[in-house]
């Protein structure tokens, strides 16, 4: 009883398993000790056979486990020979990314991000109309002007955007021709052949800057 009491403090489940096993063994033992009448019924299955079979089965795999443990094993008993050669060291097959490509990618991301940006609609401080007039004036008399020259970076993003919008507006109205001689080559701008009747139609003066701003924001990615 002391023993069982002790077991209770330990793992009951384990104790139970041991007790079952002990009882089974005791039962087998007592059966062995009882004399059997010689005219016993036809050979009944030996009650120990199943237990013996299972113990044997387990013993086999216990041995097998030892066998596996004794196999020469990588990292314990043996190592794969390796003579690294610089010749064979493959150059990393990852594609190289140039700084330029990164910048292009970044610009695309920025452009995309800008589509989701909130546009604060406010009265334009720089008039697109005024800029359109300026551009036409600057082009007056000239045949072609380089597209880039029309921009004045010192005006900042806002100024550049206004100039760009002005050019787009002029092109849309057929007042400017935009020419590109070769792919990725510089763009050239000239006044459309037909003389402008009215460079700045008053009716468009109060056009909605909001729409144009959206166009302008989308276009750099496409241009």
């Amino acid at each position: 009883m002391n023993y069982i009491g002790m077991m209770q403090e330990m793992q009951l489940e384990l104790a139970g398993e041991y007790l079952v096993m002990a009882a089974t063994l005791a039962e087998l033992k007592s059966r062995m000790l009882l004399p059997r009448s010689s005219d016993a019924a036809p050979e009944e299955a030996d009650p120990r056979a199943e237990l013996v079979r299972r113990l044997q089965e387990y013993e086999r795999y216990k041995q097998a486990a030892l066998g596996i443990d004794q196999l020469p094993r990588l990292e314990r008993d043996t190592w794969v020979a390796n003579a690294p050669s610089e010749l064979h060291r493959p150059v990393s097959s990852l594609p190289k990314v140039t700084l330029q490509e990164m910048i292009v990618a970044f610009r695309e991301v920025v452009a995309r991000a800008q589509m989701f940006a909130h546009h604060h609609v406010q009265r334009e401080r720089l008039s697109v109309r005024a800029r359109m007039t300026d551009i036409l004036a600057a082009l007056d008399g000239q045949t072609f002007a380089e597209f880039n020259r029309l921009f004045r970076p010192e005006e900042g993003r806002m100024g550049v955007t206004v100039t760009f919008m002005a050019i787009l507006e002029l092109v849309r109205e057929g007042l400017l021709d935009l020419v590109q001689t070769e792919a990725y080559g510089p763009l050239h701008v000239r006044r459309a052949d037909r003389p402008p009747v009215q460079a700045v139609p008053d009716t468009v003066e109060d056009g909605t800057p909001n729409n144009e701003a959206n166009e302008a924001n989308e276009d750099p990615g496409i241009a």
Binding site: E57, R60, Q63, A64, Q70, P72
Partner: peptide
């Protein structure tokens, strides 16, 4: 690979199951 075997047949042979009679002839 880890245990240096070419296939499962290379595993150490499993012990034979012994017949009851061999285990305990006394029975």
């Amino acid at each position: 690979d880890y245990f240096g075997l070419a296939d499962l047949d290379d595993l150490p042979p499993l012990a034979e199951l012994k017949a009851m009679a061999d285990l305990n002839p006394q029975l």
